[in-house]
Simulated assay, not measured.
Amino acid sequence: MTQAIFSTVAVYFVVWWITLFAVLPFGHRTQAEDNEVVLGTVASAPTKFRGWRVVLMTTLVSAIIYGGWFILTDYFGFSFDALPQIVPRYGG
């Protein structure tokens, strides 16, 4: 039971972390784009810090991805062992 919970949290954490880097650039406005470059910062720095929005969007998207993975593995029985049966092999 403990291993199943740990595995679930570990998989969700990996999905969340990968999703974070996919969601991060959406809606990003740089200081150069807004013509508000603050002295001592680079022009590519964000104009507004949107940390909570990024965390919320990452959590929402990763929950959808994880839910899809959970349904495919638990209810439909898909696994890495099933891939050779799904994907045909080419070659000799």
Rank of each mutant, 00 (worst) to 15 (best):
S7T: 12
P25G: 08
Y90I: 14
V42K: 13
K48W: 04
A43L: 04
V15R: 02
Y66N: 09
V15Q: 01
R50W: 00
R29D: 01
A4H: 12
G91V: 11
Y90D: 12
T19G: 04
F80A: 09
E36G: 01
P46S: 06
S62Q: 07
F21W: 14
L20Y: 15
A10K: 14
T19I: 04
Q31P: 06
F70Y: 15
F49K: 10
P46Y: 05
T47I: 11
W17E: 00
D34F: 12
V11E: 08
L24F: 11
A45I: 01
R50Q: 06
F13R: 07
V23S: 02
V54S: 02
T2G: 13
L24H: 05
R53F: 03
L83N: 04
P88G: 11
K48F: 13
T58Q: 07
P84K: 14
W52N: 06
T73L: 02
L20R: 05
T47V: 13
M1E: 07
A10L: 13
P84A: 03
R50G: 04
L83R: 11
T19Y: 02
W69Q: 12
F6G: 03
G68W: 13
M1V: 06
T19E: 05
V14F: 15
L20P: 00
T2L: 15
W17C: 02
G68K: 09
V9H: 00
W17S: 06
A32L: 14
W17G: 00
N35M: 08
L20A: 11
Y66R: 04
V61P: 01
F70N: 09
F76P: 02
A43P: 03
I71K: 10
G27W: 08
G91P: 14
K48P: 00
G91F: 11
Q3G: 03
L20Q: 01
P46K: 03
V55W: 11
Q31S: 10
W69G: 08
